[in-house]
Nucleic acid binder design. Structure first.
Length: 557
DNA sequence: CACCACATC
DNA sequence: CCTCGATGTGGTG
């Protein structure tokens, strides 16, 4: 049974769709599958693939039933068309949005630190690759890939540890430069962000292309880093566009409905932020591979709105999305956690010790960020790579290591014996110790902010008033960034995690070190360990989810 | 509320 | 040490 094509693809990793390496992608996939075989990781992936395949069968069976009982498809399509008309009416081409993205950020910084790396196939990371140089990418090496697999693809691959270098410093510099083009700049991780350059261009009477070219030149001259950028009427499109001419290039999507429709038409749905591997397969199962297929299959999607989210997808098909760029607002953190991966352990004492470490880490983090929480969630990953979570909610807010450990231990005991490779503790239902009175604080916040003057539109995926029968809805978009301001007078946002950190040098530097030390495995981002911070993505942007959504709407009438 | 799946950098 | 870590959203029961 040959491992299904889907499994091979899954093993190839999440960031496979990149252009550039095309040709021997199948050979690369073969090597990856070959190297993975027999490992527990592989077994787990195989199982997940199987589960998904089963889910798809169910889905198709449902679809068939629905189609069979729906004699008049044209009527369903007409309804979808009506929604499309309504959505088109909300298209807003008035704002010029830019998404900028540093090219292989970590790797580029490493080259600056060690010029001898220039032109070589190397990757930043430990057991997992954070970022691969473009030379390494030619061999199929990608971020998120296990190092031993990468070595199979590229035997002479050089591994560079990240850490000593200051990614945050470079990130901060770049962000500062970008802010010149839009003070409301919204960072989305340490190597990318969004800008609304409408005003910038208008005031100087220059084209968006020139402004972005100017920005990219400034970044290069001041940091020696190259950036790619996308220019489009909304965040979603801008993000997709920044990838178009990726290393060191920019792409400007014409601000014209027809051009946008043409652009979307053949765009693989996987390119849409929010559509990952699983969603891609589910959609593919009903014949949707490109955004244009969304239209072709609108009847099916309409019938299976709950499973797919019709309106959400129609927005994508139309290339419509939020065009609102705002800096991260108040801290709206939902959870704080810490976790650690280690060689599989079966010994209770050893596992408990790990739990202890993680609790200590979390306590330090919470103290630093001034949070407390009521729900403790224990997370563990078995040596089979299966992940489980167990949670318990308390009456009072916790933040002390002893308390965290006590609850975590209780939750853990119920699971033993087991052999695990990761233990994590997370707190949710948070309370901000810094701002005791949320109500008051929000009051001041809103009072001091001029209610956004130029309000751009944040797309609401729900079809507003719907008319007819069951309205279909999609998940709601949300946008909220996080973190950031709020600090007391003597704090400053950390350039990496954006958390407020006491400004005194020692504390600030210590925080930076800890913040950078962990880092990133994946690409860059995140704040790390102990410090949490900005949810990047999830935040400021669009990320809407469609998975299953849909509340049923109602309201009507 | 507990748990899970998915997504992103 | 060995296929990450941190965080968010939303669905399900």
């Amino acid at each position: 049974m040959s491992q299904s094509a889907s499994l091979v693809k899954r093993l190839a990793g999440p960031s496979t769709g990149k252009a550039g390496l095309a040709q021997d992608q199948s050979e690369i996939n073969r090597i990856i599958a070959e190297a993975s075989k027999g490992s527990k990781f592989y077994d787990r992936e195989k199982q997940k693939d199987k589960e998904l395949t089963a889910k798809i069968e169910t889905l198709l069976a449902q679809r068939d039933v629905l189609l069979a009982r729906t004699p008049d498809l044209s009527r369903i399509e007409a309804k979808a068309d009506q929604i499309l008309l309504k959505l088109k009416a909300e298209r807003d081409l008035s704002q010029t949005i830019v998404h900028f993205d540093l090219d292989s950020f970590f790797a580029s910084v490493e080259v600056l630190n060690d010029p001898s790396l220039a032109g070589k196939a190397f990757a930043v990371g430990h057991s997992v690759i954070s970022t691969a140089s473009y030379e390494a990418r030619k061999f199929g090496v990608r971020s998120g890939m296990a190092t031993f697999i990468a070595k199979k693809l590229c035997p002479h691959l050089l591994m560079v540890d990240h850490g000593l270098t200051s990614y945050s410093e470079m990130s901060r510099k770049v962000m500062e430069i970008c802010k010149r083009y839009d003070p409301q700049m919204c960072p989305a991780g340490c190597d990318e962000g969004y800008l609304n350059i409408t005003a910038y261009c208008a005031e100087r009477n220059i084209s968006a292309d020139d402004a972005v070219q100017h920005l990219r030149t400034a970044v290069y001259e001041e940091t020696q880093l190259t950036v790619s950028a996308g220019i489009a009427p909304n965040l979603m499109l801008a993000k997709i566009c920044s990838d178009k001419n990726k290393p060191n290039g920019q792409y400007h999507l014409p601000f014209d409905e027809d051009a946008i429709m043409e652009f979307m038409c053949d765009l693989p749905i996987r390119k849409i932020p929010g559509i990952g591997r699983v969603s891609e397969r589910l959609l593919e199962s009903i014949g949707i591979k490109t955004c244009g297929d969304i239209y072709a299959r609108r009847a099916t999607l309409s019938l299976m709105d709950k499973q797919f989210g019709l309106v959400y997808l129609l927005h994508k098909y139309l290339g419509i999305g939020s065009n609102c760029v705002e800096p991260p607002q108040r801290e709206e953190r939902k959870s704080i956690g810490a976790e650690r991966t280690f060689a599989p352990l079966s010994d209770k004492e050893k596992i408990v010790e790990k739990l202890h470490e993680v609790c200590a880490e979390l306590e330090a983090d919470m103290a630093e960020t001034q949070w407390a929480g009521r729900t403790v969630t224990l997370k563990y990953k078995l040596d089979t790579f299966e992940v489980h979570t167990r949670a318990k909610t308390c009456d009072r807010y916790l933040s002390k290591q002893e308390d965290l450990f006590a609850i975590g231990y209780e939750l853990l005991l119920a699971e033993l014996p087991m052999t695990c490779r990761l233990i994590g503790i997370r707190l949710t239902k948070l309370k901000d110790l810094r701002e005791p009175s949320t109500g008051i604080r929000r009051f001041f916040e809103s009072a001091s902010e001029p209610l956004s003057p130029s309000k751009k539109r944040k797309i609401d995926h729900s079809v507003s008033d719907d008319d007819s029968d069951e309205g279909n809805f999609i998940a709601k978009p949300r946008s909220k960034p996080a973190s950031s301001t709020s600090g007391s007078a003597s704090t400053h946002p950390c350039p990496v995690c954006e958390k407020q950190v006491p400004i005194e040098n020692d504390a600030f530097n210590a925080h930076l070190d800890s913040c950078l030390s962990r880092d990133a495995i994946s690409q860059a981002q995140s704040a790390t360990s102990t410090t949490p911070a900005s949810p990047q993505q999830g935040s400021g942007n669009l990320l809407e989810r469609w998975a299953n959504l849909a509340p049923k709407k109602k309201t009507k009438k």
